[in-house]
Write a protein that binds this DNA or RNA. Sequence first.
DNA 1: AATGAATGAGCATTCATTCAT
DNA 2: CATGAATGAATGCTCATTCAT
Lengths: 221, 221, 221, 221
Amino acid sequence: MPLAVPTASRTRERVLRAAAELFAARGFAGTSISAIRSASGALASSIYWEFGSKDGILVAVLQDAAARWLDQARACAVRATAQPGSSAAHRLRDYLDYLAGALAERPEFLRLLLLLSLERRDVDPASLRAIRQVRQHAIDMLAHLYVETGIVDATAAGSVATDLARASLAFFDGSFIAAQIDPETTDLRRMFSMLQAGITAAVPEPGDRDAVHRSIVEGRT
Amino acid sequence: MPLAVPTASRTRERVLRAAAELFAARGFAGTSISAIRSASGALASSIYWEFGSKDGILVAVLQDAAARWLDQARACAVRATAQPGSSAAHRLRDYLDYLAGALAERPEFLRLLLLLSLERRDVDPASLRAIRQVRQHAIDMLAHLYVETGIVDATAAGSVATDLARASLAFFDGSFIAAQIDPETTDLRRMFSMLQAGITAAVPEPGDRDAVHRSIVEGRT
Amino acid sequence: MPLAVPTASRTRERVLRAAAELFAARGFAGTSISAIRSASGALASSIYWEFGSKDGILVAVLQDAAARWLDQARACAVRATAQPGSSAAHRLRDYLDYLAGALAERPEFLRLLLLLSLERRDVDPASLRAIRQVRQHAIDMLAHLYVETGIVDATAAGSVATDLARASLAFFDGSFIAAQIDPETTDLRRMFSMLQAGITAAVPEPGDRDAVHRSIVEGRT
Amino acid sequence: MPLAVPTASRTRERVLRAAAELFAARGFAGTSISAIRSASGALASSIYWEFGSKDGILVAVLQDAAARWLDQARACAVRATAQPGSSAAHRLRDYLDYLAGALAERPEFLRLLLLLSLERRDVDPASLRAIRQVRQHAIDMLAHLYVETGIVDATAAGSVATDLARASLAFFDGSFIAAQIDPETTDLRRMFSMLQAGITAAVPEPGDRDAVHRSIVEGRT
DNA sequence: AATGAATGAGCATTCATTCAT
DNA sequence: CATGAATGAATGCTCATTCAT
């Protein structure tokens, strides 16, 4: 008995892969159904049967990519918390290293996220949800890490850690874009290590933690 | 006797303004000549007479926007250096405040820059030059400010200030994008004040400057 | 129950017919897709679905016309060789009569061939192949006829018959063009009968054949 | 006092030259005013000032080219009749040699003539007049030559010589087109020498002239 | 589920031509 | 006469989408 692989699912998969690449490379408006068709090998009408519309492809692509990313991120978080013995700074470095590596290897997802966020004024609610979920997850994970590694005092309000996480995410995104604009003069890993150094540098000694954090988040002249 | 304003210049101006807005809002591929035509009131063929092609419009828009931005930035720099009495931290805050204000008021330029950088794999050399010139100018200005305000020691290599400036720019860009994705939960001014606080916080007292700077830039665990 | 005729083939057929007429009448550059559209009743996008491009239409038109012409020519050749009893001169006259009649009735094909040959410096290889195939076939057929009717001695090199056939074809084409330029003063059938007379006149009596042929082909003063 | 060369005339000349080449190469419909503009270096509005319309350019080009050609042809005819001592066959060969040489060196004019004749259903009366004048002149000249060289008996009706001249012209045109379609396998000079040989071969000896001519023109089986 | 053809609005661009200066 | 800009229709072609089978 042959293991009958349904054609549809393979079509769906191939279309998702092709569309993700094309959207990430040329944007949504810059990607035609015809381009997806020839890149995926699927018929245009089959694509419409599967996804209903061009927006439908986008939603599916984002949800798929978000799911993959979250899976990966969860696995990484598990690994990070599984090393209780290591120092806070060490575990932070580990996590940031992982992020930098993931971005360097498969930059399409972040490209997709940023490009679509800027390109589309009126995103599908479903797409927007997928995008925000990923970003929120990243923020939550970083905030948790900052608290858990003692960089942010657990007694402080959660918003301190969240703000720091948001700032870190902004720095990620900005660094990534810099690497897209000036690939030659931008060293993504170095910028990430600068972030890490900045954050750990802001924790000179246990006794002074709160003051520094307050200064970072609330501003100080 | 009416003062005869040359029609050509007005056409060019109106097209540039309309195209800049549309490109910033919907991207290059998402903006049709027809949209520019109706937004600017110019004939499509007149647009082609002026700019030669759709890419030509993009180049002109970017060069124009870059020139405006650089003018503005220069004026701001002059104002900043005209207050020698104020403290380093104060002048940095002034400058960052200015940047945040400019971005909040006229966000199209940065949108345009970031969106086009991500959207177009094969940018015109002229466009790329305009984009990079603006970014380089921003980096130079920040680096100069960091040195001049004493945040980075003048005796240190210039690359320290440049690295810090690059990092600041990345943080700007990332914060801006965050504001585009999550307008409700992102407070641009607050994120900028976080950056400023982080940088000044890294300068606890004159005697310890060098060590801290080294730690930020070169990494420390 | 109506006999369902596939729409596609009818579209293709109608476009081919309309385009052939228009190309023959106004040339390739002078024929717009819009003209083909309204003459054929097909949508412009359907035309592009079928033929891919304007050049694609031209290639298809030429291949189709060439195929029809070759079919017709083959049928005529069969008829000509089916009358072994008639004299050489008679059979030649028959064949040339046929050619003149075909050109007089359906002059579009030769018009198309000549016009496109002159108009397009850079013809599609496929088009060029179709054009040359038809011409070569005509030359071969005439050469065969010249040998078989004894006008050219079979013992002479084949190139003699071929040269005579080429010259005949040139005379055809030139006569046809004369009829296009000066329809009133040009009698196509009369010019063809002149050709035939000239050729048979060149064969005064069996014994002197070779000398005459040599004189015709190799030149004599 | 500088020798003021009027700019207009030079513009006219340059446009005529450029347009003649372009029309000959790509046809009338295939040649845009813009192409003529860039090929001639003249402003589009200057072209319109000089020629009034695109059709006006065509008329001027044809009249100019026809005038040049007629001048050349007249000069050649003068030379031909200036050698009364040479034999009929020799003088015919001379003239045909000259024609073949002129066509080989400057084929644009004949290309222009043939292409426009085929391309344009509704030619300007002025253009048509220019075209027909050239053709008529060629026919007259050939007919005159055939009579004067004794190839056609002067006592025969003039229409015999004219018919032979028309046939010769047709052969010219057809050979020229063959050279355009199959440049590799077509030797223009050889085809012309075939024509010459055929005509002189048709004049075996003085006493039999009339019979042969009658056979050629009126047909014989 | 899959297929090839159709649909009509829209795309970027060029056309021949005109006009004010 | 020369110039640069304007004009609007038309160009070849692609778009996202639908339809009958």
